[in-house]
Design a binder for these strands. Structure first.
Length: 540
RNA sequence: GGGCCCGUAGCUCAAUGGCAGAGCAGCUGACUCUUAAUCAGCGGGUUGAAGGUUCAAGUCCUUCCGGGCUCACCA
């Protein structure tokens, strides 16, 4: 975690931190690693006294090149068209396909404590003409760009190729056009049928002035131009771009040789893997970012991204595992350590700053946050399944005093997350349900346990029948004592009879929540269940 | 084919070149009202493999094996 502080110590003067994203579709959780890293760097810079601007851009003039999210009839019409010019496929009020997906993603930022100083949309930037000087310069130095592509990336463009993409005046596509001439004012372009495989141009050709939003720079030049336009000093990027001879290398070279400026400091970061493989929404691996945040509150999600070094891939598999509960446990351990409470085991390196940077509010009172009462997530996931449990009261009892407003908010946040986790991710062993019929496992009950169940039917019937959870709980204990059965085995008998497992939620409240006749019938049934089997041998 | 990252306990990860460790999971035990909580204890390893440097290698060098990502078309 020291990486951010070390970076902050290395630079001098005001800083501009930038990142941008192409809104080509639904975004998965892994994509949030970039913004979180960005935010942590910004906080580290500000904490060490650097005046810092955080920019976040949307590359919405990029061509649509993924047809997965288009309706079949829209594919032919919109492939190759700038994302900003495609109608929203989901009619929920967004102006375009790009706005829809970018906004869905950006809306998560504030919830995650990420507050860029400014968002910019490249379609707007081009329209204002701010990019025109860079387009001009790129065209004037087209030969430099061609040479550099050949040298840095071994990409061989024809000698007539020019680094600008015109938006076709006829069909509106940008992914299918190629510029072959530049006279200093206008370019000659062709919208070709077979320039790329994934989209088909309309055949238009002609001269056009490539300014004011009528054309855009290819990605690598656009990136470098952003650095110059905004004065970017630090820009992290995913390792897909950071590879040798890859996108970042090209853009770095373009910045130096075309726009004559040193590229920003790079902080390459690894991805978030699911089951050892890259998370990919289109391949059905991993959850969409805006879905998984329902089960992982902001501070825990920040912890997930901040804990490892940026160049370490994160292994995270929330499906059917306890990965999410463990994330909460880890956060709580960091809080304990920060508050000076005893912590089991050793702490991860840089644990103090992990907690600090995981907090939502950079100006938060760290001491207060660390000492606040936080209920165990696993315990809550269990309690929300207990019928009728008064969880706030239970938590106040556990804490030993009433919850503060902040603690109550944490509790509510965790309860919501626990419900979302149980609904979408939890392994079956974390869920429980009352079986409709006597579970097979109830056949492993021994004679003492059956006697107990029979005695419980008797104790719970008639005039003195239990009226609530407390009452049932007391009855269970007294009945168990009456037949000389240790409470642990008595509870196990009840769980086996109703849930088919040897443990479960507080039995008194469970029974109180069920139909009285059903409870009595089940108890009798379990008490009478096949006794021909050896009590010791179980059910071989 | 080129590049980058990774490989340590069942899982997730630590270990300025100095006795291989934690959390979780697992197992055992304790608990008459938190009973999937809590507490106590236990087991768990040829650090992917082979060489080399060193008094000393999980760590540095070389080679190999395995996994992943990525570039070479576009962004």
């Amino acid at each position: 975690m020291e990486w951010a502080d070390e970076l902050a110590a290395r630079v001098s003067g005001p800083q501009v931190v930038n990142d941008s994203k192409t809104p080509s579709g639904t975004v998965n959780v892994g994509s949030l690693r970039g913004p979180v890293i960005l935010d942590v760097i910004t906080r580290a810079l500000r904490a060490s006294g650097h005046e810092t601007t955080l920019l976040y851009g949307v590359d919405d003039l990029d061509a649509m090149d993924a047809q997965a999210l288009l309706t079949p009839d829209a594919v032919e019409r919109y492939m190759g068209v700038p994302l900003a010019h495609i109608p929203d496929q989901i009619e929920d009020g967004h102006a375009s396909y790009a706005r829809h997906h970018a906004q869905t993603f950006i809306d998560l930022f504030a919830d995650l404590g990420i507050h860029p100083s400014r968002y910019y949309w490249m379609s707007d930037i081009y329209n204002t003409g701010d990019m025109d000087p860079y387009i001009q310069q790129a065209l004037d130095r087209a030969h430099v760009v061609r040479d550099l592509y050949r040298r840095v990336s071994n990409v061989q463009h024809p000698d007539t190729w020019h680094p600008v993409l015109v938006i076709c005046e006829t069909c509106g596509r940008v992914g299918t056009t190629i510029v072959t001439k530049w006279d200093g004012d206008r370019v000659y372009y062709e919208c070709r049928k077979d320039l790329v495989q994934w989209a088909h141009g309309c055949g238009t050709s002609g001269w056009v002035a490539p300014f004011g939003g009528r054309a855009k720079l290819p990605w690598n030049l656009e990136w470098a131009a952003q650095w110059s336009l905004f004065g970017v000093t630090i820009e992290p990027c995913g390792k897909d771009l950071a590879t040798a001879g890859g996108s970042r290398d090209r853009s770095d070279a373009i910045a130096r040789e075309v726009f004559e400026r040193e590229p920003p400091i790079n902080v390459p970061y690894e991805f978030l893997n699911i089951g050892g493989r890259k998370m990919s929404t289109s391949k059905g691996r991993g959850a969409a970012a805006h879905r998984i945040v329902e089960a992982i509150p902001p501070e825990q999600l920040r912890t997930l991204f901040i804990r490892p070094r940026p160049n370490h891939a994160i292994e995270f598999d929330p499906e059917g595992t306890d990965a999410i509960p463990r994330l909460f446990d880890e956060f709580d351990r960091l809080a304990d350590a920060t508050a000076g409470r005893p912590v089991k085991g050793e702490l991860p390196p840089g644990s103090a700053s992990i907690f600090r940077y995981a907090l939502l509010d950079p100006a938060a009172d760290i001491e207060a946050e660390a000492t606040a009462f936080r209920p165990s997530f696993a315990h809550l996931a269990f309690l929300v399944q207990v019928p009728g449990a008064d969880i706030p009261a239970l938590m106040a009892a556990e804490k030993g005093s009433p919850l503060t407003l902040r603690e109550r908010a944490v509790l509510d946040e965790r309860l919501a997350a626990a419900r979302a986790w149980l609904a979408a991710y939890a392994p079956d062993r974390a869920r429980m349900s009352v079986h409709e019929a006597l579970p097979d496992e109830a056949r492993t009950l021994d004679l003492d346990q059956r006697s107990f169940l029979a005695a419980l039917v008797a104790a719970a019937g008639g005039a003195g029948q239990p009226s609530g959870g407390d009452d049932w709980q007391a009855t269970i204990f007294s009945t168990a004592a009456g037949v000389g059965l240790p409470p642990g085995r008595a509870f196990a008998a009840l769980y086996l009879a109703f849930l088919g497992r040897p443990n479960g939620p507080r039995a008194g409240w469970l029974l109180a929540s069920l139909d009285r006749g059903f409870v009595a019938a089940r108890l009798r049934e379990a008490a009478a269940a096949d006794a021909t089997m050896s009590p010791a041998g179980g059910g071989a």
